[in-house]
């Protein structure tokens, strides 16, 4: 239900954006971006399990952590930012495998690639939807997990903001890996192997944001770096994914 509400408000926003787009030159408009974005969002809302499973994974594994390392509140609160961030990394990665898979298998990815327009915008639309259905819910859920892991009160807001910014970068970077491995039969572990090292900066600055806030410093610089990473990733990652999709389609 919640996801449908999100979908409605977003499609309204998309319509107003489209109305603005009509005023522009036909070529300046991003062709097919909004249509694809809306379709993807509807599809994602229909496949509930794709949204819910990463979240369940996130919560379940985090619930295992105190069982593994002990229930001492001080230790848990020290480890909380790192644990939550690593779990967000894994949850994003696991859900990323299916990013292009369905489209690859039913041939619509090939149709997209055959269009005269660059693949950049279709990829960006898909990644945006992926982020809306995994990254944003993860960030929304993070205060609950922070509470379970005894996170300090001043850490909640930085955790949420850093997760919102960071998971968008994770979705973008992971899309490159998903596009590279879409033609393989069992990409799961390989995807983790090739993408995990690329996640390192996001992880460092994500946990750094929360840690700075917990230590009583300003966390603006770390957030700024996360934003810079997101800007670079948004510019380059869809390009790399588009190239990777073309390579995969040749296979």
């Amino acid at each position: 239900m919640g996801s449908e509400a999100v979908g409605v408000s977003l499609s309204k926003k998309a319509q107003s954006d489209e109305a603005r787009g009509v005023a522009l030159d036909a070529y300046a408009r991003v062709p097919g971006f909004y249509t694809l974005f809306r379709t993807e969002l509807v599809l994602a809302a229909r496949r509930r399990s794709d949204i819910v499973n990463p979240l369940l994974f996130f919560v379940t594994v985090l619930a295992m952590m105190p069982l593994g390392i002990g229930p001492e509140p001080e230790m848990l609160s020290r480890m909380a930012p790192g644990l939550i961030w690593v779990m967000a990394l894994l949850a994003t990665l696991l859900s990323q495998e299916s990013l292009f898979r369905g489209d690859y298998e039913d041939g619509s990815l090939e149709q997209l690639a055959l269009q005269p327009q660059p693949l950049y915008f279709p990829v960006l639309a898909k990644v945006l939807v992926h982020w809306l259905v995994t990254g944003v819910p993860l960030a929304l859920l993070s205060p609950l997990l922070g509470m379970m892991l005894n996170l300090g009160a001043e850490g909640y807001w930085p955790l949420f903001v850093s997760l919102v910014l960071g998971t968008a970068s994770l979705s973008l970077i992971g899309a490159v890996g998903a596009a590279l491995t879409v033609a393989l039969r069992r990409p799961g572990l390989l995807l983790a192997l090739i993408i995990m090292p690329l996640y390192v900066p996001v992880l460092i600055f994500g946990t750094g944001t929360v840690q700075a806030a917990l230590d009583g410093y300003s966390f603006g610089p770390q957030l700024a770096v996360l934003g810079a990473i997101l800007a670079v990733a948004a510019a380059l990652a869809p390009l790399a994914s588009a190239g990777a999709i073309r390579i995969s389609l040749e296979n």
Binding site: L190, P197, L198, V200, A240, I247, E250, N251
Partner: peptide, 30 residues
């Protein structure tokens, strides 16, 4: 991982390139 050699060539070349962009960022952040 690819059964077709050319695909493996191109895919790993692209991954190596993506890694090159990332190496300075990774070094700085670490």
């Amino acid at each position: 991982a690819f059964s077709r050699e050319q695909s493996g060539d191109k895919a790993s070349a692209l991954l190596a390139l993506v890694g090159t962009v990332n190496i300075p960022i990774i070094y700085k952040s670490v």
